[in-house]
Simulated assay, not measured.
Amino acid sequence: MNRLPDIDAFEERAAIAEFDGGLSREEAEDLAARAQGYRDRHHYWEVLADYVIRSGRP
Rank of each mutant, 00 (worst) to 15 (best):
P58Y: 10
D30M: 01
N2V: 00
E18H: 09
E29N: 08
F10P: 01
E46Y: 11
A35G: 06
S55P: 04
R25H: 13
R57I: 14
R25M: 05
A14Q: 07
E46V: 12
R13E: 05
E29V: 02
R39E: 08
L31R: 00
P5M: 07
P58M: 08
M1G: 14
P5Y: 05
A28K: 08
D40N: 00
R34Q: 13
L31Y: 06
P58R: 12
G37E: 13
V52L: 12
F10G: 00
R54M: 11
P58T: 05
W45P: 06
R39F: 08
A15H: 10
V47E: 00
A33P: 12
G37F: 14
Y38V: 02
L4W: 12
D30N: 13
G22P: 10
R39D: 10
E12Y: 04
E29L: 02
I53Y: 15
L31D: 08
V47M: 04
A15K: 04
Y44D: 00
D20G: 15
L4E: 11
V52H: 05
G21S: 07
E27Q: 11
A32R: 01
G56Y: 14
E26S: 04
A33E: 11
D20F: 09
E18Y: 04
A14F: 03
L4M: 04
D8H: 07
S55C: 07
N2Y: 00
D6G: 15
D8N: 06
I16C: 09
G22C: 06
R25P: 03
Q36W: 13
Q36M: 13
D8V: 10
A49C: 15
A32W: 01
Y38W: 12
H42T: 01
L4K: 03
A9G: 14
L48V: 02
A49Y: 14
A14S: 06
E27W: 05
G56N: 15
D8R: 06
H43N: 11
A28F: 06
D30G: 07
G37Y: 13
R41Q: 11
R34E: 11
R25Q: 06
R54A: 11
R3G: 02
I16E: 04
A14E: 07
Y44V: 00
D8I: 12
E12R: 08
L4T: 09
E11S: 03
R41H: 04
I16F: 06
R25T: 03
H42M: 01
Y44G: 00
D40S: 02
F10I: 01
R41S: 07
Y44W: 02
H43A: 13
H42Q: 04
D50E: 11
R57K: 15
N2E: 04
R54S: 14
D30Y: 03
Y38N: 08
E26L: 04
R34K: 10
R25C: 02
R3N: 10
L48H: 02
E18V: 09
H42S: 02
D6S: 15
Y51C: 03
G21T: 14
A9K: 07
H43Q: 10
G56P: 12
